[in-house]
Nucleic acid binder design. Structure first.
Lengths: 128, 128
DNA sequence: GATGACTTTTACGTAAAAGTCAATTTTTAG
DNA sequence: CTAAAAATTGACTTTTACGTAAAAGTCATC
């Protein structure tokens, strides 16, 4: 029932180094169990690593990724805390929407380049 | 007709420092004109800076941004070059699509958190 | 009990992307 | 023309996110 992953299994799966995963632990992003000194990663740790790396691909810093992870930890009990959290969620959403807009624009420009290339190729084949 | 921007105009508009723009020039990403030693930025430089910062927001490195800029420079003449460029465009597109997927997933999770917060708030108001 | 594959900690190193500071110009307003 | 404001260069520093090397512990297997 309790299947554990070793550190190298995860480094292979995610294409990162052991140093990277230890670094994330030092930074308090993950908390694998220990058997003696050896780290034991559970399925939940594995999921979390996936989320961290997703944030990394999006260009978030460790601090920003930490914020996202804190958000995932689920809603707290107190009203003030809840409202604070919803504000944070809204901020992250804004950042992500900005990034999405950036992506759409860049993709659109790449489409133009692509078309220009195709047009030029067509010209060349006919013999300019 | 030839409206020039000063460096500080652009730093204010884009929210970056002069050092940043000088850095981009050192890196060969932009090539503002000079009157004496002073940099003069044209509309095209301004557009380019916008594109650079867009790449930066997406977490691309300077090297990757340079690649994108090179792509924008327009299609070259030779067939081999054209095909190479289309390959590069395809690669960038893949990267961007991955990022977009990452964004959608993260947004979806934030939606869940948001709903959980709202639900919890509703509970609290009724009196749990 | 030796081998080999993994893993650990500690600690220094490094590349990328600016920030900061100081010492000059240069430009612009009056 | 001149003082203030803006811009320049160069050198040095900082932060982030790991890389890398050393030295030693762990564990399965032959």
């Amino acid at each position: 029932m309790h299947k554990y992953y070793t550190i190298t299994e995860l480094t292979r799966e995610f294409g990162v180094s052991t140093r990277t995963l230890r670094f994330y632990e030092d930074e308090g992003l993950i908390h694998p169990e220990r058997r003696g000194r050896t780290r034991l990663f559970k399925a939940s740790d594995r999921r979390l690593i996936g989320e961290i790396l997703r944030g990394r691909r999006l260009g978030f810093t460790i601090a920003e990724i930490r914020e996202i992870i804190d958000i995932y930890k689920g809603p707290p009990g107190e009203i003030g805390q809840l409202e604070l959290m919803m504000k944070r969620v809204a901020e992250k959403r804004d950042q992500l929407n900005q990034k999405r807009k950036d992506i759409e624009e860049t993709l659109a420009e790449l489409d133009n380049v692509d078309e220009a290339c195709l047009a030029r190729l067509a010209e060349l084949r006919v013999g300019s």
